[in-house]
Design a protein around this nucleic acid. Structure first.
Lengths: 210, 210
DNA sequence: GTCTCGATGTATCGGCCCGATACATCGCAA
DNA sequence: TTGCGATGTATCGGGCCGATACATCGAGAC
């Protein structure tokens, strides 16, 4: 999962580990608070070994954005890495539908074609529906078998699942009718990055707050 | 985290691995769908090695509940295991407040004293509030920097965080006024298990559905 | 009658990811 | 000038997961 996220971010710009971690945190803030270095560096090493990224021990020719300093290692995606990213984006296994997997895929939806978006949204919906049914099952049989706190936990989980299903339904409806999700007050924010082969993003969204 | 859950379940009754996994799944259904055997058996081995549980290769004197058969290994908690469970229940580190840790602790709240319950609920609330603030921060600075999908993801995450904080507030209020959580329609379900040293559970709950 | 199939049941292996920890450098303010 | 907080790279032990393998039992299919 991290692999996909890293490749996706490096596709926007080369970075070193520290930046990567921060970008990861803001882009995937919903999924995991911040990626651990104990995960990040080994993963980068793995990606490098596989040939998806390069590690340039940069000193000259710094990228302007940061305060520059004497940065250490700058990671850059390769052509094969871009292919790999596209593959990972398009193909959806079971792990695509758990919390983390879905979150990462969703975060890169603006680089995903509509058909894949729909496939993933529907897969995720199915997954959450199963979870929801499981919780309903347990709760219906629970009276006397589970204590009040455990029941309350399940009830809260059930509510979250129902809410997510509704959210997914809205997103699916919007996708089918060619809309894009809306910001908090209903305005549209088109992707700011000049991603090359992105799908056509028709304007005019709509998504009312519950 | 699993250690706490296993000890807690074995305190109710001896079981073998298969049953343990099923009980774990229903009790912690909100947290993780089902524990993997690749986690369960090594953990059981670890607990056995530490002396918290015993592994009896049972054949005679089966416990009545299940269809019995020729069960393999029955796990049983030891006196030291019960002490360990009490310790784990009472002490709260940082991992007590993440999703999994909080869920497990909460699931055993009926065996926890009120002071600890309050401490854990407040710690969790603090954690979720931090997450919520982080998301608000990102969303407020996001216009133009994040594409529509990423923003929608954050928005949904923010809403979930706000909702959980509200939920926690209610629980904390109820704890302070000596109530116990309520079922879906407001009825009270006292713990069914005859847990020995459980805290006094005054009646009359109240918790309205949003 | 027997045979296959699904539920029960125990166990290992490779791999991802985390938290703790250890360093080293840079800019700035006391 | 010294020391502190942000930046930055890296490793290690350990928890947990998914895939896999294997064995037994009860029941319905044929």
């Amino acid at each position: 999962m991290l692999e996909l996220a890293i490749l996706g971010l490096l596709q926007e710009a080369p970075m070193h580990g520290y930046e990567l971690r921060k970008e990861l945190a803001t882009k995937l803030g919903t999924i995991r608070a911040a990626i651990s270095y104990g995960t990040l560096y080994p993963t980068l090493k793995r990606l490098h070994h596989a040939g998806w990224i390069t590690e340039s021990s940069a000193d000259a020719a710094m990228i302007p954005p940061m305060t520059s300093k004497r940065g250490r290692v700058v990671y850059k995606i390769t052509a094969e890495g871009k292919e790999r990213f596209a593959d990972l984006l398009a193909q959806a296994g079971p792990e695509t539908y758990d919390d983390a997997g879905f979150g990462v895929h969703f975060a890169f939806f603006s680089r995903t074609d509509r058909a894949t978006r729909l496939r993933i949204l529907e897969g995720r919906r199915r997954r959450v529906e199963e979870r929801r049914e499981g919780l309903r099952e347990v709760l219906s049989r629970a009276t006397g078998r589970l204590d009040a706190y455990t029941q309350e936990l399940q009830r809260h989980g059930l509510e979250a699942a129902e809410r997510e299903v509704r959210w997914l339904e809205e997103l699916i409806t919007n996708e089918r009718s060619g809309r894009t999700p809306a910001g908090p007050s209903g305005e549209l924010h088109l992707p700011a990055d000049p991603a090359g082969d992105a799908p056509p993003e028709p304007p005019r969204p709509h998504m009312d707050r519950p």
